[in-house]
Amino acid sequence: MVFRISGLSLPLVGLLAFLTVVSAYSETYVGCSSIGAALAGDQVTATSIAGCNAACAAAGYTYAYFANPDSNSNYCGCFSEGPASGGNRDPESGFTDCGNDQSTVYALATDYNFIQCYSSPSSDDTTSQITNDACWDHCKTYTNALFQYASNHFNCICSNVAISSDGSAETCSRSAYFAYSHTPFSSPSLADRRRRRLERMKREQLVMNRFCPSGLEACKVPGSEDSFECIDTSSELESCGGCLYGSYTNATASAGIDCSILTGAALGGTTCSAGRCEISACQDGFKLVEGRCH
């Protein structure tokens, strides 16, 4: 299925900025959630946490949920907002291992780095915030930001005390404080300018995600720099497994295949299924062997 949307363009500078921003952002652990939470997001194909993070960031999202309940199932849900205050679950093992029966949640658009979870940390500033992002923003002039999931809010602590010497490290459970560090800004004005820059970058990311409906990819149209097609590359015969002429939003995406011109394949004897060409009939003089015409 193909939708053609002509006349819509993103300035080259904006596109390059988007590609740079994705690689500059830090991937930061924010906890465990349910498998259902991952399924509620826009789904992309991924087989690992790192792959899910990369796919969601490339699609313009700021949060990624990955779950693999068994060897045959992987779920990667992309979101533009972080988890709800009451949505955290205890890890299955270790300090942060969410295991196979839960989703692992990462933030993709913050300069904060996850350190560890702690109990009873010191505080220079304690507040209640609606989201974890709001806590990070509130603590922008401090070295550390720590938040605790509560029933309908986040308990937020800002601190300049070295996290390694403060409090007791513990499993990242519902009652723990998730501790993060970053390079603080020396004045609120600098922090505000940086916050506005991050918000602008996030908006640029989200613009990329609005090009095509969920499940379709924006593909370049040959001969027209200002046009693209929204294609389901999982089933499109002439652009199977990716964009034949390149992705409009992801310069590093793998190119697709035109299944209709496979060597030896009969006219109408090919289909695209799950992003792979499948041959059902060959031309005279060719024989179908292990899915290929020889």
Rank of each mutant, 00 (worst) to 15 (best):
M1A: 12
M1Y: 07
V2S: 13
V2P: 11
L10I: 14
T20R: 12
T20C: 13
T20H: 12
V21R: 03
V22Y: 00
A24W: 12
Y25W: 13
Y25G: 13
E27Y: 02
Y29N: 01
G36Q: 10
A38D: 02
L39I: 13
G41K: 10
D42G: 04
Q43V: 04
V44S: 00
T45A: 03
I49A: 11
I49E: 08
A50V: 15
N53W: 00
A54E: 12
A55Q: 00
T62C: 03
T62A: 06
A67H: 05
S73Q: 13
Y75K: 09
C78D: 05
C78Q: 05
E81K: 08
G87D: 14
G87L: 07
G87A: 15
E92W: 09
T96L: 04
C98L: 13
Q102T: 08
Q102C: 06
S103M: 01
S103V: 01
T110E: 04
F114H: 06
F114R: 04
Q116Y: 09
C117I: 07
C117R: 00
Y118N: 03
S120F: 14
S120N: 15
D124K: 04
D124L: 08
T131V: 01
D133R: 11
A134N: 07
C139K: 02
T141K: 01
T143R: 15
Q148A: 01
N155R: 09
N155S: 13
C156R: 07
N160I: 07
D166E: 02
D166V: 02
D166R: 00
S168V: 12
S168D: 13
A169Q: 15
E170D: 05
T171R: 10
C172E: 08
S173K: 08
Y177F: 14
T183C: 01
T183Q: 06
F185T: 02
S187M: 08
R196C: 07
L198G: 04
E199W: 06
E199A: 15
M201S: 15
R203Y: 03
E204H: 14
V207R: 06
R210P: 00
E217A: 14
E217Y: 14
E217M: 12
A218I: 06
K220H: 11
V221G: 05
G223M: 09
E225P: 02
S227W: 02
F228V: 03
I231L: 07
T233C: 09
E236D: 11
S239M: 06
G242I: 06
C243W: 05
L244H: 06
L244C: 08
L244R: 05
T249C: 04
A251G: 09
A265Q: 12
A266T: 05
A266H: 07
L267C: 03
C272V: 06
I279D: 01
S280M: 02
A281I: 03
C282W: 08
K287G: 05
K287P: 00
K287I: 05
G291P: 15
R292M: 10
H294N: 12
H294M: 11
